[in-house]
Design a protein around this nucleic acid. Structure first.
Lengths: 198, 198
DNA sequence: GGAATTTTTTAGCGATGACTACAAAAATTT
DNA sequence: AAATTTTTGTAGTCATCGCTAAAAAATTCC
């Protein structure tokens, strides 16, 4: 159980860092950053706290890795919606519809980890990490909108992110996919009607 | 400083319970239930923990009093919007506009205490109290909508509360009144266009 | 095989969480 | 004034928080 591919010296790790990040992601997503302690994380990862700190530095260090993984995976609804192409309105509508599919409770986790993972957290480091990830996501949406509507990009981006905030909070409160879909569809129509997007 | 109106026996209280509830409301609203400890609450109230527990039973007991006060005051945006009369759409639009005015950060607190005060909380009692208050608010909105649109009351109530969720989360993230207003106005127009309310 | 390196485990650190036993203090009742 | 009732402050309780010192264990390099 200790065969390691890399030729690194020293005693090899007995756990998979990538799997550990996935496990931690599930816990943080389900219950929020503060509510998941290092003791519980270590237990879930099958390691002892010193191994945890040797691998990730501290709790916020693991959270940073988790957010990085989260933001580059399927959970980044805008990134994947844009990759499918189409008009500005089509991409934004698809973004909202992907959120409606993704946000409802699955394996105990609901909503968006970046949006709600550190809400009410008492840890400034964790909050800053989530804030940075959120700003990056918002900037990507705004820059994309600016291609078609540079003058109203900020305004439209606000509308999209507030819509996602509502859907994430609702999902965390147990609202189901059908209601989220209705909300997303209504918001999509508003993007065309109110902001004149095509 | 110990004159008491009531003819109750025993040593009189040296602090005002009503003022204590207001102070605690501000702290819970600004930072969330879990992030405000009993030690900090006691300090802010100018009392020692035993006086705290004698007066409120426990931390959740104080939170219950806080929520009761919050839900019967100006923070209950729907209650006050309905009291001003008007059509269904007018009352719901006014509800959203009041939220846009009320939710931005004031004295460190932002958004809605009932919606976001226990988000990610590890305390099941506190979560249940906020859930009950939230359900009561939603039921009031739904019952009001049902007078004009009984068949679509649930659907429209979902739309309204998800909109409020988004505005509360956005306000807690620092979004200002102007952006909240735009969002509320767009949602108000959706209520008329999509749901045919007058 | 011995030295060097890295991760592991054991066992705990100090700080803070919600909460409380107990007795003194301050009021009313008799 | 004495008894009763209630609140007060002192000084803790135990559990959990994030985190770590120290040494044993498991690998590679020479």
């Amino acid at each position: 159980m200790t065969t390691k591919i890399s030729g690194a010296r020293g005693r090899p790790r007995t756990f998979d860092v990538d799997r550990a990040i996935e496990t931690a992601m599930g816990l943080f997503h389900a219950r929020g950053y503060d509510a998941v302690g290092v003791a519980e994380l270590s237990e879930a990862l099958g390691i002892k706290p010193p191994s945890f700190y040797a691998a990730f530095g501290n709790k916020a260090g693991l959270f940073e890795r988790v957010l990085e993984r989260y933001a580059t995976g399927d959970a980044n609804v805008f990134l994947h919606a844009r990759a499918q192409g189409g008009s500005t309105a089509e991409v934004l509508e698809r973004t909202l519809m992907r959120a409606a599919q993704l946000y409802p409770t699955r394996n105990g986790a609901a909503g968006c980890l970046v949006i709600d993972g550190t809400r009410n957290s008492a840890d400034p480091d964790a909050r800053a990490l989530a804030s940075a990830a959120q700003r990056a996501g918002r900037d990507a949406v705004r820059d994309f909108i600016a291609i078609e509507a540079p003058d109203r990009a900020e305004e439209i981006a606000d509308f999209v992110v507030i819509t996602l905030f509502g859907m994430s909070a609702a999902a965390r409160n147990g609202v189901g996919e059908a209601a989220l879909r209705s909300f997303a569809e209504a918001a999509g129509r508003t993007l065309r009607r109110e902001f004149g997007l095509t």
